[in-house]
Design a protein around this nucleic acid. Structure first.
Lengths: 248, 248
DNA sequence: AGGGCACGTTGACGTGGATCAAACGGGCGG
DNA sequence: CCGCCCGTTTGATCCACGTCAACGTGCCCT
């Protein structure tokens, strides 16, 4: 009976804790002390795997938890009664999903995995409870929500004032910068979404997106091969964001 | 000396507390018990009057507090390096301003009064402190932030998928509904902002806004006289939001 | 390995809203 | 009460992007 101790730890118990997570610098654990991290670990009881093209939650679902992305890639979108929809964001590892549901206790958008993904489920009632006791967690969470608001303002600016090529340049630079923050190459990456999804996000039609990609390639800013993007001239792209207007 | 008791309370001491505020149903105090309200009153120490066309805060200002609007009307806008800007929202009594500043400790947009206004100054550090102890306050604040995120998603949808007239119809219905929530007429109100500001908010030029107003008037949906709007056919406006597309 | 299909590219053409321009009107200061 | 000026309205023209259509291509499933 002494082999009991030798029984291999089952996969189920191999819970990857926040304290061990290599995304903790990007996520809620940021700046927490070791004992505080332990308490956060308890909070994040379950994790959930989401297959490509399946929903993490849907608009109308009752809100119970927010989700931290461990691995993978998501989009969120909102639907209008008449069938039109709009992608409101693309989320990658370390980012938080689901905060739209707090206000009404029901989610107001869909979250769909664009590749096989895994999220940490953070029961919201427990998060509020713990953040009453752990100041750094409370503050981090407020920052995460505020960052989402600031991001949204940037997107409004893009949708309200930019022309098609500026929008795509801004999109590529944003992706580049986020990949870099996660330790991937900022010059070369694989887009998980279709042209149509990019278009929806940027308020453009897929043909316009495709044409802008081709133009950028012709002009030597990037090289495109399907979903694989290599950015050749980052400063050049950045210049596209500024006033085309020669002078006035 | 017995007149002492008759000395009129000076204006300075007539602090209008949250507990007395007729906006408490719309604002952070919602659902708080009387003793909790008293603690919130202490928190909201100062109020501040903002003259028309002056700034409550500017992009780049260091973030210290959020603001609850007591009276008046504001716009927030973001500025691009090249001078382009975009109005990201119009705020009225009972709404909260300044949450964009939490994420970086600096404000990321400008808040400008569109009429003489007054705000309650809520020092953010103290709000976090108190919301650790008053659960309802914590939850309300989270809801307020979440509501802002949901609102932003709606605006993205508008900017990304709607045509000019749909945008203006959505805008008018939104204003109408918010005036109603505050006990004003939903049919008749005074817009505080210019056509250019409406245009900036809706991602349109002022001429387009003006034309759409005229069209709505010609078609009998509304009557416009400068900034004074009377909505004649609310269901009609609402229908404009749905699929123009006859069938498909 | 083959075949189908979803995704992507490219071209031709149409249009909604931007741009440019001019005139109007109402509120405010003198 | 008059005149100025900012905000608004309206018209004429232009163009960026949408729409429609045809063709290419890589990937997945059997």
């Amino acid at each position: 009976m002494q082999e009991k101790a030798a029984i291999p730890i089952s996969i189920g118990h191999l819970k990857t804790a926040c304290s061990q997570c290599n995304l903790r610098e990007l996520c809620l654990p940021y700046g927490l002390s070791d004992p505080e991290l332990d308490r956060l670990d308890e909070l994040v009881g379950t994790r959930r795997k989401i297959k490509r093209h399946s929903h993490l939650y849907r608009s109308g679902d009752s809100f119970e938890a927010i989700y931290a992305i461990r691995t993978g890639f998501f989009k969120t979108d909102v639907l209008l009664e008449d069938g039109r929809d709009q992608v409101t964001g693309f989320q990658m590892a370390g980012e938080i999903l689901g905060m739209d549901g707090i206000s009404t206790e029901h989610h107001s958008c869909n979250a769909v995995a664009l590749e096989d993904s895994e999220v940490c489920v953070i029961p919201f009632a427990k998060l509020e409870e713990l953040s009453r006791e752990v100041n750094a967690l409370q503050h981090n969470f407020h920052k995460v929500m505020s960052r989402e608001i600031v991001r949204d303002h940037g997107l409004m600016m893009l949708l309200g004032t930019m022309r098609a090529e500026e929008r795509l340049a801004a999109f590529l630079l944003n992706m580049s910068q986020r990949f870099m923050a996660r330790g991937y190459s900022p010059q070369e990456f694989h887009l998980r979404m279709t042209r149509e999804e990019i278009g929806s996000y940027l308020g453009l039609k897929l043909e316009t997106v495709s044409r802008a990609f081709s133009k950028f390639q012709d002009e030597g800013y990037i090289s495109v091969q399907q979903k694989h993007i290599r950015i050749i001239d980052i400063p050049g792209l950045r210049k596209l964001l500024n006033p085309q207007t020669p002078h006035c």
